[in-house]
Amino acid sequence: MTALLSAKGLKKRFGGNEAVKDVSFDVNEGECVVLAGDNGAGKSTVIKMISGVYTPTEGEVHFDGARLTGKSAEAIRTAGIETIYQDLALADNLDPGLNLYLGREKTRRFLGLPFLAREEMRRDAVDVLQSLGIVVPDPTAPVREMSGGQRQAIAIARAIHWQAKLVIMDEPTAALGVPEQREVMALIERLKSKGVGIILISHNLPDIFAAADRIIVLARGVVAGERRPSETNDEEIVRMMMGATL
């Protein structure tokens, strides 16, 4: 079976500084791969080379049978890779429907003029969220009035509504309380069951073990090791993060 995403020999140099030296890994459909590593290990740089924010100095990325390297961030999103940033990039003052459709709003013509189809977008949002197991108490309320888990769900809903095949999540539980962290973990499970591939960045060990199908540990810009959660333990992962020899 060919991988959904395959990164080969990624390298990124900023001036004289090699942030990423040599990183290769695959992600399969419906699989959650965790990129673990200490600060400065190169996790974010790797992600940005996949999402098109950076162009790799060397190496390439293939996705769904096509070569992505060198394409724009916009083109990569259209190809089906969505990145959910820590800050979620939601417009807090708008309802879930408008957030779901932000930038691609639905309109209806009336007397020749386009009017936003607010109700329709709201209904779609409720449907997509329901498929993620989230019930929104009041879909007309701005998303600022919702819980951290619900807000995360809206960001994820936006990704899957636009047919993302791979979702990159950057520290999704970092700012959340314990119950909300659980909600996010449940969301990840549901995404996997829809066949969506996930790359999760985290340095929270319980999250890593709860979500991962495979753990790829980065240290100082290289892959320090790859493990399945069942074959390893906290201690070994931490040692790998610290760059200890294997």
């Binding site: 916009e74 800050d87 990039a89 708008l94 408008l98 930038g103 709003e105 309109t107 386009p114 936003l116």
Partner: peptide, 28 residues
């Protein structure tokens, strides 16, 4: 009033006021 409440331009204006990144990442 039409512009601000019923058009994409209006929604993007509100979103811009709340969080510039939201509209930027939405490709506006």
């Amino acid at each position: 009033s039409y512009l601000l409440t019923h058009t994409k331009f209006g929604v993007h204006t509100y979103a811009l006021g709340a969080n510039r990144a939201s509209v930027e990442r939405a490709g506006v």
